[in-house]
Design a protein around this nucleic acid. Structure first.
Lengths: 233, 233
DNA sequence: CCCTCTCAAAAAGTCAGACTTATACGTCAC
DNA sequence: GTGACGTATAAGTCTGACTTTTTGAGAGGG
């Protein structure tokens, strides 16, 4: 994804980050830098850099004379893409997937509404292309090809919204969509109704109809919520 | 806010972070670790730790034989609370405040709807208390006292939603509300209509009326958007 | 003239060891 | 029991030497 082996401290993080986010060390656990360095067979400098990164993610707090203490889950920087990836890779996956899907359901409709106002002609064309790609791969178990276009579609919408906070959620949405295709439901072809909705969103954005784009996107995200059995009776 | 002087590397970040997020180094600029270390009069170890943190925020990328290059704005981890604080403290403030207010307008209504379903009796009580505090301080230039209750109110709503992603936006909303009171409009007493809306949201949540809580919160956020002249004609 | 291959310089990366500083905790006197 | 004091501990800092990767320049050949 990002960069596999970007230095020794990176490889330490690849092990330590998932371990912490998976809850292997309960909140308040104390780690010693020296012991960790020995355990990973790296120098203290390297281990210190790794700890600094974990600290910047608010996963741990380092205090003199005490050690490196694991912070409670509620203090983590849960929007850090790295943290999201670690959690999606671990036992927390289902819970994380639900949280992110709810987040999507709040963001994407608003983003689509803004995209209808701000999208450039190029972005409109790209959007239409993505929607057509989805249609073309919606039958015959072409799940991977469908996924590529689905991800691209939502990424364009978020970018075209013109809001940098929305735009940066493109990677998160990509992870959620990929996760759904690879590990959850979706054994057969995607819901035809969802495909149609994507085409209609592209239309609405092209026509500058923000209200319609928002409403249609809300229907898409409601579908995503229902797939995960997140709904109020 | 967090911890002022948590080590030398922290003090380096306090200078370097704001400088980068303010755009003082254009994207692609190359910094040398050794030169920076000399400039800040710290050892290379300390400077390396600082660079590692900036790297984990995707503000810079470190490559051998090249140096530490500043990444383009669109790649930054803009949800990192530290990055948000740095940007709010710099020249980017107005733009950042708008982005975050739009984000609020997408998140908070949905969060309020969920809070109506999931809020504990304690949270309902706390919410009512906050709303009453806002009413009590809505007249007579008691802006600071009003702000405290306003922040607490929105924090409770986000927490009570039961979604960890929403909950972690409490700090962001606090920054936005504080920013509005301290640096933007709001020279006189807050809008009475907004105060009433908060009281009604507390009611709706207490009664478990998610749809009403969502709708009322949407009115609140629309008001916030209008204050910043963000609206479509 | 252009292309490729080689090589050396440059900057990050790694390591080891010594030293400093803050602080939790135990001890002792009161 | 309460307070002041001292000590052990683990993080923090600094330094200097060494390694590794990568780029860009220059040599050589087509």
């Amino acid at each position: 994804m990002t960069t596999p082996g970007r230095g020794l401290h990176g490889r330490v993080l690849d092990t330590l980050g998932p371990a912490i986010t998976a809850g292997e060390y309960p909140p308040g656990s104390v780690l010693r830098t020296d012991e960790l360095a020995q355990g990973f067979e790296v120098s203290r400098s390297v281990m210190r850099e790794a700890v600094r990164v974990l600290e910047s993610m608010h996963l741990v707090a380092s205090r003199r004379r005490v050690g490196v203490t694991v912070r409670p889950k509620c203090e983590w920087n849960v929007y850090d893409p790295q943290v999201i990836r670690w959690r999606l890779a671990g036992a927390d996956r289902p819970h994380q997937l639900r949280s992110l899907t709810v987040l999507r359901s709040a963001i994407e409709p608003v983003a689509a509404g803004l995209a209808a106002q701000h999208a450039t002609p190029e972005q409109c064309a790209e959007l239409t292309e993505c929607a057509l790609g989805m249609v073309a791969n919606s039958r015959g178990h072409r799940l991977e090809e469908y996924l590529v276009h689905d991800i691209a579609f939502h990424r364009v919408v978020l970018t075209a919204s013109g809001n940098e906070m929305f735009a940066r959620l493109g990677d998160v949405v990509a992870e959620v969509l990929a996760g759904r295709t690879h590990h959850e439901v979706m054994f057969e072809d995607p819901d035809p109704a969802a495909v149609t909705l994507h085409v209609q969103v592209a239309e609405a954005v092209r026509e500058g109809d923000g209200a319609r784009a928002e409403k249609l996107t809300r229907e898409i995200t409601v579908g995503a919520l229902e797939e995960l059995d997140i709904l109020a009776p």
